[in-house]
Nucleic acid binder design. Structure first.
Length: 459
RNA sequence: GUCCCCAUCGUCUAGCCUGGUUAGGACACUACCCUUUCACGGUAAGAACCGGGGUUCGAAUCCCCGUGGGGACGCCA
C-alpha cells in the first residue's frame, strides 16, 4: 500500500471557521496517524472573492492550531504550485485530455463535461426551466464513513466558465489526480458533489480516491449548519478570546469522532494514535460552546506556571493592542505580574476573566461593589475588625501565606473571634468584591503598604 | 420539488457491525460535601434508545415504511 496523501483545500474567500478547522484537523490527524502527507492547497479560482487577508488568515489559523502541512504554500513540495491561481497551465493540459477523449462540448462560451447516456429535455420545477437530463449510470462513492453511496449524475455540467476560468469540480479533481491524493476527507456538504467528481476521475482514467465525508457542525441555536456568520463560528474569535489551541483542537476532535469508551481529554499524540476514519460518526453535531469552555478550563488548569504566565501576558498584550485602552497589568513589574497570574490560574475558567479578576492588583482605583459592601458592612462590627488588622500589620510576617494566616488567626483569637470574621471585610477592602484568591495570598502579593492603605480607606 | 446523508438524555456521545447492559460517560442544570470568599474537586439526583410494522424466545442493536433533522441541486468553493 502506497503512502497516504490527504489535502485540505480551503478557498480564501472568507473568515476561517470551525467547520473548516475541523476538516483540516481530521485530514491532518489521518495523515499523522498513517504516517502520510498532509497537503495544503489553496483553491483560489474565484478571483472576484479572493483576498490576501483571508489567505493569511488560513495560514495563521492552521499554524495556531498546530496543523502543520507537509506540502503547500510556504512548505513547498514536488507537486506545486499549491495555489490554483498558479496552476492554469496544468488545467489547460488536463482539459485537452478530456477534449481528445470527446468528453466535452462548448455552449454559451463555456465548456461542459459530457456524461455518457441518452439525453432528453425535461422541465425542472425547482429551477423553473427546461434542462437536458442524461440517463447515466449511477456513480458509486465508496465512503469510509458512510459505506457505499450511489448517486446518479444526470446533467452535464460546466467545467470551464465562459471567461476561461475552470470551475471547482474540475480543478479539484485535476489537482487531486496531479497531486496523487489518495484520500479525500471533506464535509458532508460535498457528498452530492462526489458523483460529479467520480465521473471526472473516470473520464481521466484515474483511480478514484477513497472518500470520507465527515458530518457537519450545526449551529448552537436554530436550524442549519454553522456558517461564518454564526455566533462563535470563527477560529479567530477563539484566538482573540484567549482560548488555548490545544483545548480547541481536543474539543473539535470530539465533535464527530471519539475513541470509544469514556476518554475525552487527551493529549494530541494519543489522539493521533487512536484516530481513524471508521471511528468518525455519521450524524451531524451541534456546537456547544459551554463544553468547549470547560475543556479550555481543564487545559488552563494544568498549564505549567511559566506557560500560563506567558499565555496570560500575550492575552493582555493582545487586549491592549486591540482596544487601545491603558492596561495597567502590562506596565507592572514582571515578578509581580507573575505572582498575580499564578493566583488567578486555579480560579478562572478562561483567560477572558483575567482582566476583571485581577484588575485591583494593578490599580488602587478599583471599583467597589456596592451590594457586596452593603452586605459586608452590615454584619458584626467590620470597622473594628479593620482597625484590629491595621494595628497588627506592622508586626505581621508577610513571608508566606501560612505566616499571614497565623497572624490573622492570632488577632482573631485575642477577640475570641475566628478567621472568618476578618475575611470578608478584608477582602472587600482589598479588592472591592467578595470573590477572589485566598485573602492571605492577597495580603502577601499586595504587600504591607498597599494592604494598609486599602484597609484604612474603608474606615 | 428531485436526489443524497443521518436519527440514544437539553447538548456531545459510549453501546449497534458480532441481538440478552440496572442503556455508561462528559457538558449544562439541581442538591449536598469540601472550604476562609469565589472557583476547583467529590457525592447524589433528574434526564434518552423518534413512531409504526417485521424477523427473533428476546431488538437501542438486524430489515421495511413513516416522521423528523441535515445537505446538495450556481459559469461559488
Amino acid at each position: 500500500m502506497s503512502q497516504v496523501r490527504v489535502r485540505f483545500a480551503p478557498s480564501p474567500t472568507g473568515f476561517f471557521h470551525i467547520g473548516s478547522a475541523r476538516t483540516a484537523l481530521f485530514n491532518w490527524l489521518y495523515a499523522r496517524h498513517t504516517g502520510g502527507v498532509f497537503v495544503l492547497r489553496i483553491e483560489d479560482t474565484d478571483q472576484a472573492r479572493n483576498s490576501d487577508e483571508f489567505l493569511n488568515l488560513i495560514y495563521d489559523s492552521l499554524s495556531w492550531l498546530g496543523l502543520n502541512w507537509d506540502e503547500g504554500p510556504k512548505a513547498g513540495g514536488a507537486f506545486g504550485p499549491y495555489r490554483q491561481s498558479e496552476r492554469a497551465h496544468i488545467y489547460r493540459e488536463y482539459l485537452e485530455k478530456l477534449k481528445a477523449a470527446g468528453r466535452t462540448y462548448e455552449k454559451d462560451g463555456a465548456v461542459y463535461f459530457k456524461l455518457i447516456g441518452e439525453r432528453s429535455e425535461v422541465f425542472d420545477e425547482h429551477r423553473k426551466k427546461t434542462v437536458t437530463k442524461v440517463a447515466a449510470a449511477p456513480s458509486v462513492i465508496d465512503d469510509q464513513i458512510r459505506g457505499r453511496v450511489e448517486r446518479t449524475e444526470d446533467e452535464d455540467f460546466v467545467i470551464v466558465r465562459s471567461d476561461g476560468n475552470p470551475v471547482f469540480h474540475f480543478v479539484n479533481v485535476v489537482d487531486d489526480i496531479a497531486m496523487k491524493i489518495t484520500h479525500v476527507i471533506r464535509g458532508e456538504d460535498h457528498l452530492s458533489n462526489s458523483s460529479k467528481h467520480v465521473e471526472l476521475f473516470k473520464a481521466f482514467g484515474a483511480p478514484v480516491p477513497s472518500y470520507a465525508h465527515i458530518p457537519l457542525i450545526l449551529k448552537q441555536n436554530g436550524p442549519g449548519k454553522m456558517s461564518k456568520r454564526d455566533q462563535g463560528a470563527l477560529i479567530e474569535e477563539y484566538r482573540k478570546r484567549g482560548f488555548l489551541p490545544e483545548a480547541l483542537v481536543n474539543f473539535l476532535c470530539l465533535l464527530g469522532w471519539n475513541p470509544g469508551g469514556d476518554r475525552e481529554k487527551m493529549p494530541i499524540a494519543e489522539i493521533i494514535q487512536l484516530f481513524d476514519l471508521p471511528g468518525v460518526n455519521q450524524s451531524n453535531a451541534r456546537f456547544d460552546e459551554k463544553k468547549l469552555a470547560h475543556m479550555n478550563m481543564a487545559y488552563l488548569l494544568e498549564l505549567p506556571a511559566d506557560r500560563f504566565v506567558a499565555t496570560a501576558r500575550e492575552y493582555f498584550e493582545r487586549q491592549a493592542r486591540e482596544s487601545e485602552l491603558p492596561k495597567p497589568a502590562l506596565v507592572a513589574d514582571a515578578a509581580y505580574f507573575r505572582e498575580i497570574m499564578l493566583l488567578a490560574q486555579p480560579k478562572i475558567k478562561g483567560l477572558e476573566e483575567l482582566p476583571a479578576y485581577t484588575a485591583y492588583f494593578f490599580t488602587d482605583d478599583f471599583a467597589i461593589d456596592a451590594k457586596v459592601k452593603e452586605k459586608v458592612m452590615a454584619k458584626g462590627d467590620p470597622k473594628a475588625r479593620l482597625n484590629e488588622l491595621v494595628a497588627a500589620l506592622p508586626a505581621m510576617d508577610f513571608s508566606s501565606d501560612t505566616a499571614i494566616e497565623e497572624a490573622i488567626k492570632k488577632v482573631a483569637a485575642e477577640k475570641t473571634l475566628g478567621f472568618g470574621d476578618y475575611q470578608a471585610v478584608a477582602r472587600l477592602a482589598l479588592s472591592g468584591t467578595n470573590a477572589g484568591p485566598s485573602i492571605t495570598s492577597m495580603f502577601r502579593v499586595l504587600g504591607r503598604e498597599r494592604v494598609r492603605a486599602r484597609l484604612e480607606r474603608l474606615l
